[in-house]
């Protein structure tokens, strides 16, 4: 994992994933271009490309944005999360074709620099009806570019997972900008029930899924511990933790995961060092806690990734009192060895 910045290497699952990305994109382009040529054949090649790729990009963006909450709601969707960055980069490339052709077609070959022209050729910033919608698309494309450019784990390391995550959360800003870009642009000139309906449906689907997931997680956050004895917090009984799995608790302000394996129990931080995945939803595989998102591994008794990897997470002390598990809320330094409790 930490050694060569390439934890997520090529493997069969990724190849299948990528194959389906390409198939999906080709089917989309064939449908859009085919239908347009058959039913509206006076189109120009440039317009065909601009529209085919613009609409493809927004369609892919919706698929990307539903995968996150689906994987949070049901772990069977996790394989879709595993290689989502390739879907993201593909979406960016489609958006780049759209934006690139648009800038070339509408803003280039004039008497000013094309980028300057995006901002200045229509100055009606104060009017919704006349708003320069291309500016919104431009900012969205810049965000998508930054995300695609930093999608490799090399950048995750270099920017620190926190900054990286913040940058990648900007996908929601980009999504908002793109929705406005379409509603204030193409849909104003050619409004139709169909296109407005599909855009609205997309937005409602994404918003609902995120709200449902969000409320589920807030509820989970409320299951705080109650009894505190001499600083030790009671979390649950031993048989409440499934074998090779964990239960997640909030102690202090941190989420921790209490794992049960080989008649032992260990507590570690719930937050994966890779992209902050929920380790407590992972499983102990070959003696290692394995992250559900991309499979980073940690030893449950010391929070260290097995050699040659170097990731370390915080560990916590546990106590068994009559099959009741107690945690000491202070996080130990990352990678601190703690004797597991046995039962």
């Amino acid at each position: 994992m930490g050694v060569n910045y390439q934890p997520v290497l090529w493997n069969r699952n990724k190849k299948i994933y990528d194959k389906w990305i390409v198939i999906g994109m080709l089917i989309y382009l064939l449908c859009f271009i085919g239908i347009t040529i058959i039913t509206n054949n006076e189109t120009s090649v440039e317009t065909l490309i601009i529209r085919a790729f613009g609409t493809l990009a927004i369609a892919l963006l919706h698929i990307i944005l539903v995968i996150g909450p689906l994987a949070r709601l049901n772990s069977k969707f996790l394989p879709l999360l595993y290689n989502r960055r390739h879907l993201g980069v593909s979406m960016f490339l489609a958006a780049l074709v759209h934006g690139g052709f648009s800038v070339f077609q509408f803003h280039s070959l004039g008497n000013v620099n094309p980028i300057y022209a995006i901002f200045t050729s229509n100055m009606d910033y104060g009017s919704l009806a006349n708003f320069p919608f291309q500016v919104l698309g431009f900012f969205a494309l810049v965000i998508l570019f930054l995300m695609a450019a930093t999608s490799h784990d090399f950048w995750l390391k270099n920017l620190s997972p926190k900054t990286w995550k913040r940058l990648h959360m900007m996908v929601y800003l980009a999504y908002g900008l793109i929705i406005l870009h379409v509603f204030l642009g193409a849909l104003q000139q050619q409004p139709s029930i169909g296109s407005i309906a599909i855009m609205s449906l997309g937005f409602i689907t994404i918003a609902t899924l995120h709200l449902v997931t969000g409320s589920k997680e807030t509820k989970a956050d409320k299951t705080k511990t109650q009894h505190i004895e001499n600083g030790w917090e009671y979390v649950c009984d031993i048989d409440e933790v499934p074998e090779d799995r964990a239960k997640i608790f909030i102690v202090g302000k941190e989420r921790i995961a209490v794992f049960k394996y080989d008649n032992k129990l260990s507590a570690i931080s719930n937050v994966c060092k890779h992209q902050g995945g929920p380790l407590g939803e992972g499983k102990v595989v070959d003696g290692c806690v394995t992250c559900p998102w991309h499979g980073y591994q940690y030893l449950p008794h010391n929070g260290q990734s097995p050699p040659p990897f170097t990731e370390k997470i915080a560990t916590y002390r546990l106590k068994n009192d009559n099959n009741k598990i107690y945690v000491l809320p202070e996080a130990l330094a990352e990678g601190t060895e703690v004797e597991p409790i046995t039962f």
Partner: peptide, 11 residues
């Protein structure tokens, strides 16, 4: 694709 393709104005 079908919706966006069919809802274009006639060129």
């Amino acid at each position: 694709a079908v919706i966006f393709a069919f809802t274009q104005n006639t060129f």
